[in-house]
Design a protein around this nucleic acid. Structure first.
Length: 654
RNA sequence: GGCGGCUUAGCUCAGUUGGCUAGAGCAUUCGGUUCAUACCCGAAGUGUCAUAGGUUCAAAUCCUAUAGCCGCUACCA
């Protein structure tokens, strides 16, 4: 009989930098699920990989003075090493620079084009003639070419578009009728529908000519396949769709679940299904958007310099402890706050005190009273029943929760049993039984029950902590290959051969360890400082007072005086005004402001206002805005803060 | 601005379709035990279940409003 298959994926990670604990979180969760399904007898395909193309990689490589390929090879080697360290059991690792992937993507792109799902259109933007470069509005710096700073002119560029818009109805039908559990958690479904589907989907630009590091469009030189088709299709190219490298597309597709970060659920629940519809291929069964690991300061990000390095943690506390912590501490669908203190507290309480200590005390009593072998002559009595009842039920409770990716609760069920076993020792007092030779058969039963508890729990914990559990099996004297899921019930094993070794999870000195980690972090940021331009994290060591900022924080906002030289409404907009400002620089500054409801252009021209001069430029309704006019709200109305005409344009406000 | 979500013990959170004195873990205090990794077991708790109304025999659980926080998004900038 053929085994049932289970295909599970992580996102393919972008190798522009080293990965942090957040990436580990997703990959460990996927690994646990893959191991669990293998344990349940499934033929599992577990895929992870890297998304290696794009402009950012191209730039990073140039900055590092290497080719893009050299750059990604280096980073990817580190990623593979990390997964090895973290005991990730992926069956395949796809790189978007792999030949077979490139070949498949080119075929898919052509196929979509031939089917009329991709059409050639034009993409409006700006062109810098001297640089021969095409830029989008958002790439311009102060409306000028970001390379040379010269003026740019309107231009249209050819690009390919995918007919995403025509799939809105089919997607809605798919979400609500064909596969109501496609998107999880469900709150994400609402976001997708309300924010994207209902307002109307737009066709998607799927090619670029602004960079070269990517997969060329075979039938149109100069065009590069943009990330959507390139990256998303990894889930099928890695099974051999459109290539001869692998041959198990038929076997594993459609995927049982894509685990993705919540920030990319949109791509996986709208664009990816639409692409597959266009190709007339089956859709994945489920997309699960998991939460983020936050730090006390907020989101983890390289620019904040607050990333947590999984390698350091694994080396210090062991891979299994980290894997356990990640899935025990945080509900998989929501965000969680990561802290070293929570990590160590969790390891001590659950792994050292409860599980590790249970193994330790059970085995040393077993050895003390019986040597290695627990006598077969055992007297079971009524007080055993509570523990045994839990052993009879835990496997099912656990698997019900695992099937819905509720790892946190699945682990909690197992640890309830571990706790009960510790209590059982207190109740039965084996050390008293051990003093009375008439009680040997009773003592044998107690020790046996404890060994059964440990064996069953360890079996269920294997997906989370493979190494530690195998060590437990070794110390129990029952071969790991005889500790499968089907044996995770009471009385499935009757003989034990105790062989106690060193403790599984040493207790950690919380205070000492926190100091060490802090020190480690300080050294690291000190080392990193010369490389990275000192960004906004310079005050991170100072105690932060809530609601209070430093003078430096304030001075980072550049407020200046400017005169409104001209003002017109933004076309097709009812709230926006487009202002031409004299900011004293000699050049005109364009700012868009949402105040048309309260001010007519004529009322503003000639007035002086305060503006934020160093605000990141943004495009509003297609018009560039290089700053912000200061205003205040009175009730529902906005009032602009006008400045005394005697103050010159460009004057700094502080 | 729109849509969605959250607000429960000092901390982190559970609380199924409204129903017995609102729970768990961690931390705290006290007691027990000694097999064990200064561990384990037991006990004690503290809660205006964000605020104000409403529906109901009965609401943490449903409805309305308000406040704070968060997510996505936008003609915020």
């Amino acid at each position: 009989m053929k085994k049932k298959t289970f295909y599970i994926t992580t996102p393919i990670y972008y190798p522009s930098d080293k990965l942090h604990i957040g990436h580990s979180y997703c990959t460990v969760a996927t690994d646990v699920m893959a191991r669990y399904k293998r344990m349940r007898g499934f033929d599992v395909m577990f895929l992870t990989g890297t998304d290696e193309h794009g402009q950012k990689i191209e730039e990073k490589a140039a900055a590092a003075g290497v080719t893009p390929q050299e750059y990604v090879d280096n980073i990817v080697a580190g990623i593979k090493k990390l997964w090895q360290l973290m005991n990730i059991s992926n069956d395949r690792f796809v790189r978007t620079t792999d030949d077979y992937h490139v070949e498949s993507v080119q075929k898919i792109f052509k196929e979509l084009y031939d089917r009329g799902e991709i059409y050639k259109g034009s993409y409006k933007g700006k062109y810098c003639t001297p640089c021969e470069s095409f830029w989008t509005e958002s790439q311009l710096v102060n409306g000028k070419c970001p390379d040379c700073g010269r003026d740019v002119k309107d231009a249209e560029e050819e690009a390919y578009f995918f007919r995403l818009s025509k799939y809105a109805d089919r997607l809605m039908k798919f979400y609500y009728e064909e596969n109501p559990t496609f998107i999880e958690p469900v709150s994400r479904l609402n976001e997708m529908v309300n924010n994207f589907i209902k307002p109307g989907l737009e066709d998607l630009c799927v090619s670029r000519t602004t960079f070269t590091w990517g997969i060329p469009v075979t039938f149109d030189p100069g065009h590069i396949v943009y990330v959507w088709v390139d990256a998303l299709s990894n889930y099928i190219t890695a099974l051999g769709y459109g290539n001869e490298k692998y041959h198990d597309y038929e076997k594993y597709w459609p995927a049982d679940v894509h685990f993705v970060g919540k920030e990319i659920t949109r791509f996986h629940t709208i664009i990816w299904p639409a692409m597959l519809m266009a190709l007339e291929l089956p859709l994945p069964k489920k997309v699960f958007g998991h939460g983020w690991l936050l730090l006390e300061g907020g989101k983890m990000s390289k620019s904040k310099g607050n990333v947590v390095d999984p390698v350091v943690l694994c080396e210090r506390y062991g891979v299994d402890a980290i894997r356990y912590f990640l899935l025990r501490e945080f509900p998989f669908g929501s965000d969680g706050v990561f802290s070293n203190e929570a990590l160590i507290t969790r390891i001590n309480a659950d792994l050292a005190n409860d599980l590790g200590n249970l193994v330790s005390r059970t085995l040393s009593m077993g050895e003390r009273y019986f040597g290695q072998l627990v006598p077969q002559d055992r007297r079971f009595i009524t007080p055993d029943e509570q523990l045994v009842a839990m052993l009879d039920n835990v496997r099912e409770q656990y698997s019900n929760l695992m099937e819905t990716f509720t790892f946190q609760s699945a682990l909690a069920e197992v640890f309830k049993v571990i706790s009960r076993a510790n209590k059982y020792i207190d109740e039965t007092e084996p050390w008293v039984l051990g003093k009375n030779s008439d009680e040997t058969d009773r003592l044998a039963a107690v020790i046996y029950n404890l060994l059964e508890t440990i064996r069953i729990c360890a079996t269920l914990l294997v997906p989370f902590m493979p190494d530690a559990c195998n060590k437990i099996f070794a110390q129990l004297g029952c071969p790991a290959d005889e500790c499968g899921y089907e044996k995770a019930i009471y009385y499935a094993n009757t003989g034990y051969c105790i062989n106690k070794k060193e403790n599984l999870f040493p207790r950690i000195d919380l205070k000492k360890e926190l100091e060490l980690l802090e020190q480690h972090k300080a050294e690291k940021t000190a080392k990193a400082a010369p490389v990275a331009p000192p960004p906004c994290n310079k005050t991170s060591e100072e105690p932060k007072v809530e609601g209070v900022i430093s003078i430096d924080d304030f001075m980072s906002v550049k407020l200046i005086v400017a005169k409104i030289a001209d003002c017109v409404p933004v076309p097709k907009s009812d709230k926006l005004l487009q202002l031409a400002l004299d900011d004293g620089s000699g050049k005109s500054r364009q700012v868009v402001s949402g105040i048309h409801a309260w001010y007519e252009p004529e009322a503003l021209i000639g007035k002086k206002v305060a503006i934020v001069a160093n605000l990141k430029p943004a495009k509003l309704r297609g018009v560039m805005s290089e700053g912000m006019i200061l205003a205040t709200d009175i009730g529902d109305a906005a009032r602009v803060l006008f400045i005394d005409d005697a103050i010159p344009c460009g004057a700094r406000i502080r």
